[in-house]
Write a protein that binds this DNA or RNA. Sequence first.
RNA 1: CGGGAAGUGGCGCAGCUUGGUUAGCGCGCAGCGUUCGGGACGCUGAGGCCGCGGGUUCAAAUCCCGCCUUCCCGACCA
Length: 469
Amino acid sequence: MAKSVLTAQSENYPQWYQDVVAKAELADNGPVRGTMVIRPYGYAIWERMQRELDDRIKAAGARNAYFPLFIPESYLRKEAQHVEGFSPELAVVTHGGGKELEEPAVVRPTSETIINVFFAKWVQSHRDLPLLINQWANVVRWELRPRVFLRTTEFLWQEGHTAHASREDARAYAVRILREVYEDFALNVLGLPVLVGRKTERERFAGADATYTIEGMMGDGKALQMGTSHELGQNFSRAFGIQFQDDTGGSEHAWQTSWGVSTRLVGALVMGHGDDAGLRLPPNLAPTQVMVVLVRAEDGAAEAAATLVADLRRAGARVELDERVDTSFGRRAVEWELKGVPVRVEVGPRDLAEGNAVVVRRDTGAKDAVAIGTAVDRVVTVLGEVQAALHAEALDRRDARTVEAMSVDEAREAAQSGFARVPWERVGEEGEDALADSGISVRCLQRPDGGLPESSSEAGLVATVGKAY
RNA sequence: CGGGAAGUGGCGCAGCUUGGUUAGCGCGCAGCGUUCGGGACGCUGAGGCCGCGGGUUCAAAUCCCGCCUUCCCGACCA
């Protein structure tokens, strides 16, 4: 890791990113091109993400369900726009049970089609609506250029699919998920500021009427789409026959949404908060918030460390004890730094003789000797401080790398090192095409006050442009 | 699909130009000892069909032909 994650000015896929992923034992490359093996430590991070997201998804009223991995090829052809969007990326199963299948089965790239076949059966009346379903699953997209966590051939995600009785209800729900689940999670758990906006026609999900997004800025100034929420209108309900009788007895097609976030968020975490020494986990996310490191076992240190762990656990912290005294202290310290554990507490005979333990912050590296009796309170306080500091640092960086531009040319220049905010009227679809030639895209459209546009043709919109992963 | 590079113990590499003893180095791994309050050191040791197939030769990791795979750049990426 020669370059700092925060300062690297990489044009392309950064090597330091892969170094952090490998050395922090998050993932390995899989045997098939573009696949990845998520290691236990990386998976623990994903599990924490799942839990935090799942709580919010359920609070928004959706319930979990599961649908098949294999989708009959014919299902995908029912919605022309949709299939056009990703047909080259499909993995297709042609054989099963030792013989060629009558109809090939597609390994799901997303589950709109299969879920909507069932929605059509489940929805009869307006009383069946809204139907709010979420699925945790793996999907496969044969991308041309995979990148660990950011764009892998197979990845894990959560995909929500809903059906509503009106356009307004569907739109409100798509926005609710965007705000109450995704934005809230990014801000308060990941500690990463995000732009909440609307995708342009060019960037919109094929098959959607509108695509909303949360966009993050990584340590090198490049953009990463961290989550999407789609307003599908009646596109799929017409294709799949999802109809209901309304309260006046009339028949109508349902209005739908779909939304998802994936293991890409682990990549966002590495690139958003990492530094020269590896990963830095925000405490609200970290599987292990506090690592109590027993320096040496003599003079009651082992007992003191065990007591501290128990006390911290009782205080609600996710805490682990590293009592591998046979391994050199330096090696262990480096290991937990690389893995980004937010707070480390060193307990050893030397400090203990003075009644102290040493509290070390991962984000700043600051070390403080504190009386062992006050260590629990101190750690709890520091966890809050680290969470806030990581968010503030990411926010400052994004703001510092965001400039106001008044033309496509200015925007192109600014996008070399970060984001440019430019009036959408000054860009337009022609400007968007021109920027694309330089590898720059419109990340999202927002109202001047940061609000979500009703359409991309609204007057006075601000386009944020940048280079993307 | 176009352009570039690389395949040698688990990982990272050297050796190849100019064929020739037993294919070497760092990290990692195992054992022992000394260490161990910031990635320790010493000694001993395990681990290799040199990507695959063919050819040239007395002799091929090395030269020739073919193939395969991977990585990087681009196109693509809801």
